[in-house]
Design a binder for these strands. Structure first.
Lengths: 337, 337
DNA sequence: TTTTGACATTAGAGCGCTCTAATGTGCAAC
DNA sequence: GTTGCACATTAGAGCGCTCTAATGTCAAAA
């Protein structure tokens, strides 16, 4: 727009020093005399100079910027991870740039490319909805931490929740209450959903229980939960006595749909969510759920990324954090045996 | 990390053409022969070349990138605005970069500077928590659209919800039901909260009603709503017969806190929220609320921004969208007169 | 054959900064 | 007075790209 912005050259001229000195001042270098520093700062603020990060980045090959890719802004689960992440990045002096793909593959691709093109020093992917192998080629040149299923890769670090523990906590709890017909409503085809479904099946098998038919919400949303419940109600299948929903949003959808029927929770049906979002804590919902260490996941992701950025560590690191169970009012002993 | 990335030069060498031609191909220029285009594309993908946006931006003075500043990732209200916004930006071929200040002033400042430094072509501010006058100096050089209270500025465009209409819809509804002691629980000192409080007071005055004492949730969160309710319950004030909460999150906090007492909603107290978030639509909450045209606000913000970017229009544009009332189950006639 | 002009391609400067190596400066040590 | 050395400052190249203006190429027109 209009007149172009002031550059270092302008500041240098006004302060009567060289461009290089201005550069040093802008980067808080200790090798500048107090006098010059003051003069440069005065000149800069007089003409409203602000450094052009684009140019700085091009010249320095470091951006001090971490790119964060977020699957979906609507899911409060990510918001909390992002919180831990942003706070930690800020604490380390890194800028953060967020992009999101709004759950659309094309836009996701584009979003990642934006981050990559902006030459961020590293990338954090929160539950990417595409196979990590696609990312792997990027990761050869750029540190990447994925909050996703741990993989064998040495190029991509991962931080994840222990899905096996989560499923076990839920199923142990339900089985302890006397449930045997436990149904999982999964979150669709994404990696996170797949991982959770797999954990569910594995733990059911450990208990010698039948995992039942596959019922999918197709996505991690309330609407998905409602649709899945509809399908379940209309199906010929016998109703389960307990449902393990792939996340709180889906559980909320289930609850919402059931409120429309004569089925009462937990009297006729126990329900467990996943993520311990604000929604679950509300007395109106009071959802038994799994609490992942969200903030810790976020900061650990950043720490791991910065470690890789600064040390150039060649080996992959794969952190797995154990979740815990929060029992509230949507689970109880089944009504009849 | 390690070996540096392939550049245009590398692609050019491999394809046996000049750097400039590669540049044209990368930008989909029509003035490239099919043969050269294919050769360049082949060479590029062979060595895994991806354009360095940083360098491109520096050279071209356009980034095709819109910076979006978001007050708080946790508030689903923003998520929806962001949705309209991102979809529209994507449709126009713009990249989007999001930053957030997690409700902390310092981080917010930093977040905006990151966006500015990255030379985004324009900025969209979603409910910034600092006075827009601070932004005004930036806006002289950079198109800025704020989703915030309309201001007289010619430099900053605004898109906002008609707070007066919102307050009137709520109060008319409540008064129509027979309520007179209506209390507003406001969202604190931020511009949005202030605007809403002001609208409430104005409309109450129009009805010849007493706006009562000021009760503040201090922020747009559930916790804020709970604290405010606590304070209200403990105060000597007579209980209102209806509460207009500054947003759904606060209303949820109020509801949650009241569920702990013998006060039933809407039997003993009517409650209205604001934003029509997913929370409000759930049967368990079934919150009467105000629906802002969130997606429309988001896309209008982008349209307005792109208009200013491309035309350099000097005059400010200030759009105000009218919200609507969604009556659910938290409002009813007061119990006793 | 030469001319013309449309189209395809390229050389080279420059975007605003950082970084290395070189250059000034002043003061303690000899 | 010279040397040495720490400290402050600067010149100038270069980051990977775009953009303008110039150049090359070829078929149709003269």
């Amino acid at each position: 727009m209009g007149s172009s912005l002031p550059t270092m050259e302008d500041v240098a001229n006004r302060a009567g020093v060289s461009r290089a000195l201005v550069s040093l001042v802008m980067r808080d270098s200790p090798k500048v005399s107090d006098g010059s520093r003051a003069a440069v700062l005065a000149a800069a603020s007089a003409i409203g100079y602000r450094p052009n990060l684009i140019a700085r980045n091009l010249a320095s090959h470091r951006t001090m910027t971490i790119g964060v890719f977020l699957d979906d802004l609507h899911n409060p689960y990510y918001a909390e991870i992002a919180d831990g992440l942003l706070a930690t990045a800020y604490g380390h002096g890194y800028h953060t740039l967020i992009t999101t793909g709004r759950r659309h593959p094309n836009e996701q691709q584009r979003a990642i490319e934006t981050l990559f093109g902006m030459q961020t020093d590293g990338l954090i992917l929160l539950s990417p909805r595409f196979p990590l192998t696609i990312i792997e080629s990027l990761a050869v040149n750029l540190p990447v931490v994925a909050v996703a299923e741990p993989l064998k890769s040495d190029h991509i670090d991962t931080v994840s929740n222990d899905e096996r523990v989560g499923a076990r906590l839920i199923i142990d709890h339900l089985v302890g209450l006397g449930h045997r017909r436990i149904l999982h409503i999964d979150g669709g085809e994404g990696p996170a959903a797949t991982m959770r479904l797999r954990a569910f099946r594995r733990v059911m098998k450990m208990h010698g229980l039948d995992p039942g038919p596959r019922i999918s919400a197709e996505e991690f949303t309330e609407a998905g939960g409602e649709r899945a419940t509809d399908r379940l109600l209309k199906s010929a299948e016998p109703m389960p006595s307990a449902i393990f929903a792939a996340n709180d949003l889906i559980a909320a959808g289930v609850l919402d749909r059931l409120d429309d029927t004569k089925i009462r929770v937990p009297r006729d049906l126990s329900l467990v969510g996943y993520d311990n979002t604000a929604l679950a804590t509300m007395r109106r919902m009071s959802l038994t759920t799994i609490d992942q260490q969200r903030v810790a996941i976020g900061s650990l992701a950043v720490e791991t990324l910065i470690d890789r950025i600064t040390t150039g560590r060649p080996a992959g690191q794969h952190h797995v954090l154990a979740p815990s169970l929060v029992v509230r009012k949507t689970t109880a002993a089944p009504r009849s045996k």
